[in-house]
Structure formats: structure tokens, C-alpha cells
């Protein structure tokens, strides 16, 4: 497989909380063209991996390169981050447009700068992009679950990122909304690199082009092919892929064991 210019490179990453090792010798490379999914069980370290990339947790060992340079504030400002939906206080008094604008907060001149007309334009473009321009003046408290999720993406897009990271984007979304949502992500994936974390194995094979499984260790795969072996290794028990039967499957190649 041809590997495009690397956006993210993680080498021998180890992260622990107290005595508990959450991530152990994780290697991960994501190229510019990738729409990458990391799947794994709850508590497998998925969110910790994202937090490490974003510099929100200290790392014990290893290195993280963003855009071929050690990850720093400048590199991270090129990331659009869509956090888990339920970590939010949607009762906060703020309109949709103002909230999306906060995605530009690091793009202003300095700490005391106001948002410029260009910032407002970028926010409005991001809202149109996700088909939510009509929501601009609504308070976020009035939005439905699906609308809130899309607005979170708009905030990430407002910063005009080169790399989009999503943490469990569809947990609180119903199935029709979820389908729309993945269509949107697929469209976006032609313009930005996407790393998505999910526990939803079924949907992965339809939309993404690369998959890795994470459960303390990361099992990176060379293509979109997801094998039963790979998944059972991650989840620690056999997982029945046939339960996602209505989804058109790709061929599941045998997984070459790496350990």
C-alpha cells in the first residue's frame, strides 16, 4: 500500500495512570489521505490515545509527531477536535454561531484580539458545510442530539484544520442521523485527514480506509480489511461479525499476527 505524507506518527507510546498502564508500546502512522478508525472495547485506552495526541495527558515514554514535527501547540492548532458529546454542558448560554466561532479561538492575533470578519466567515462556512446555517442564531440548549453533534463538528471545521479527530461521534445519535453523519464524514475525508474513535465495528468497514484495534496495545492493519482474528485479539473474546449482516461486507483477509 502506498503511504501518503504522514500527518501523525506515534512511536513506542506508553501512557499510564498511577500503576495502571493504559497504552503500551503503541505505534501508529496516519497519512494525509487516510480516513482512519480506531476501534476497541471500553477502557481499552481509545480516549487516552486521543488525549495524548492533544497533549492533555502526560506520556511516560515514546514520541508523537504531528506534520513530521514533535507535537507542540502550533501543530495541535492544526487539529480539529470533536470530543465526546456527553462531556458538554449544553445549557451554557451561547448561540450556535458563537460556539462555532470558538473553534477559531487559537487563530486570532493574540489573547486580547476579537474575532475578525474572516473568523465569522469561517464559522458561517463551517455551519453551511454541515447543513446547519439556519441554526446559527439558536442557543445550543435548544438543539436536538443530532444537531448538537453536527455543531461540534462545525466548531472543529471552523478552525480550518488539516486533521480532524473525533471521539465516539455517534454514541448518542439515532440510526438515520448516524447514516447522514457518516455520509458527511466521508465527504469531509476527501479534504481533511480523519482519525475517528468508535466502538461501532459494523459501520467502520463501510466508510473508512484504514482500521486499527486498540486494547492497551494497538493492532494496526495495512488496509481497510478487518479480520475476526484482529477483533477477537482486541476484545479478548470472539466477536461475531455476522451480526452486522445488513451491511455490505468487504472481504475479510486473514490477519497476520504481529506479536
Amino acid at each position: 500500500m502506498i503511504t501518503s505524507e504522514p500527518i501523525l506518527e506515534i512511536r513506542d507510546l506508553q501512557v499510564s495512570y498511577g500503576n495502571m498502564v493504559i497504552l503500551d508500546s503503541v505505534y501508529l502512522t496516519i497519512g494525509r489521505e487516510d480516513f482512519y478508525a480506531v476501534i476497541g472495547p471500553n477502557g481499552g485506552g481509545k480516549t487516552t490515545l486521543i488525549r495524548a495526541i492533544l497533549g492533555l495527558v502526560p506520556i511516560d515514554n515514546g514520541e508523537i509527531l504531528l506534520f513530521s514535527r514533535p507535537a507542540d501547540t502550533e501543530g495541535r492548532s492544526q487539529i480539529g477536535y470533536v470530543p465526546q458529546y456527553h462531556t458538554f454542558d449544553f445549557q451554557f448560554p451561547i448561540t450556535v454561531r458563537e460556539m462555532v466561532l470558538t473553534g477559531r479561538i487559537g487563530r486570532r492575533g493574540g489573547l486580547f484580539s476579537r474575532y475578525s470578519p474572516a473568523d465569522y466567515q469561517a464559522a458561517d462556512r463551517a455551519l453551511s458545510r454541515i447543513g446547519a446555517a439556519s441554526l446559527a442564531l439558536r442557543p445550543i440548549a435548544d438543539l436536538s442530539g443530532g444537531e448538537r453533534q453536527r455543531v461540534l463538528i462545525a466548531r472543529a471545521l471552523a478552525g480550518e484544520p488539516e486533521f480532524l479527530i473525533l471521539d465516539e461521534p455517534t454514541v448518542f445519535v439515532d440510526t438515520p442521523t448516524e447514516n447522514q453523519f457518516y455520509e458527511l464524514l466521508t465527504t469531509l475525508s476527501h479534504e481533511v485527514t480523519i482519525l475517528m474513535i468508535t466502538h461501532d465495528i459494523g459501520v467502520v468497514s463501510r466508510h473508512v480506509n484504514r482500521v486499527a484495534c486498540l486494547n492497551r496495545r494497538l493492532y494496526q492493519h495495512e488496509s481497510e480489511h478487518l479480520t475476526a482474528d484482529m477483533i477477537s485479539k482486541t476484545y479478548g473474546c470472539p466477536v461475531d461479525l455476522i451480526t452486522h449482516g445488513e451491511i455490505p461486507h468487504r472481504v475479510l483477509a486473514k490477519h497476520e499476527d504481529e506479536s
Binding site: G55, T73, I79, E98, L101, G159
Partner: peptide, 23 residues
């Protein structure tokens, strides 16, 4: 008034503000 955008961003989502490079 001078710090309003920054204060608003920190109050709304401190994590995002941190990632965006705000102090």
C-alpha cells in the same frame, strides 16, 4: 471586555481552549 472571547472559550470548553493554545 478585553478578554471576552478567551474567557468565553475557557468557560465553555476549557479542554478545547487549552488545545487551541490559550493560557
Amino acid at each position: 471586555t478585553a478578554l471576552y472571547p478567551a474567557l468565553q472559550a475557557v468557560a465553555f470548553d476549557q479542554e478545547y481552549a487549552t488545545i487551541s493554545g490559550l493560557p
